[in-house]
């Protein structure tokens, strides 16, 4: 069985990796939305499956999730998680539409969100690939609007296996403009072996 070793130095290196990746994702978001995006310092959690809510908060909350699989030398799962309100604001900005959008049903909204997921995860992965020299590809984006816990569990077992402890790398991206504030959470969950490859770049 694969045992995850996350010592202090590996943890710091991981945060740096996520910083590089999500920094690139944040600047894509910024140019798509034509606004300044703030990014938090990355957080790294190693949580047992049954304690997932410790890292992610309430698992029954409605969230909008863009889910992409990262394939290649360091595979994993990437997700961009938005609350309903933030997703609605972002969609309106992307579609340059002043009126309220029904993000639960509107198909234009869904494709705008998928495109957003696509651009953000591409930027994340491009940064990772450039810096590590590891070849990475991303899947087409999938969109889910439902309980966050249900979407995380489905994403975790995609592929038919799951580790006992989940490593979650996370940064929060946010913007506040005249009257509107919105934020999203970027998650990367590396698969077995991916961690060693990425950290190998640091020689640790």
């Amino acid at each position: 069985m694969f045992k995850m070793d996350v010592s202090a130095i590996r943890l710091e290196a991981l945060k740096e990796i996520v910083n590089i990746g999500s920094g690139n994702a944040a600047s894509s978001l910024s140019s798509m939305l034509q606004t300044r995006i703030e990014m938090t310092v990355p957080k790294v959690w190693l949580v047992p499956l049954n304690k997932l809510s410790d890292a992610l908060g309430r698992l029954d909350e409605l969230k909008v999730v863009l889910f992409l699989k990262v394939e290649g030398g360091a595979p994993g799962k990437a997700m961009f998680v938005l609350d309903e309100n933030s997703a609605e604001i972002i969609v309106r900005k992307l579609l340059r539409q002043p009126d309220k959008v029904d993000i639960l049903k509107d198909e234009m909204a869904h494709s705008a969100l998928k495109e957003l997921g696509n651009v953000m995860v591409s930027s994340f992965v491009t940064a990772l690939a450039t810096f590590s020299g590891i070849t990475l590809q991303i899947s087409v984006p999938a969109l889910g609007i439902d309980m966050i816990g249900a979407m995380i569990d489905a994403a975790l077992i995609e592929g038919g296996r799951v580790d006992d402890d989940v490593l979650i790398l996370n940064t929060k991206l946010s913007a506040s403009e005249a009257s509107e504030e919105y934020e999203g959470m970027f998650l990367f969950i590396p698969e077995e072996g991916a961690l060693d490859k990425l950290l190998g770049v640091f020689g640790i």
Binding site: S53, R58, I152, D153
Partner: peptide
């Protein structure tokens, strides 16, 4: 009572 939150494919 027994409860579990957010079942997806599980």
């Amino acid at each position: 009572k027994l409860m579990t939150v957010g079942l997806g494919s599980c």
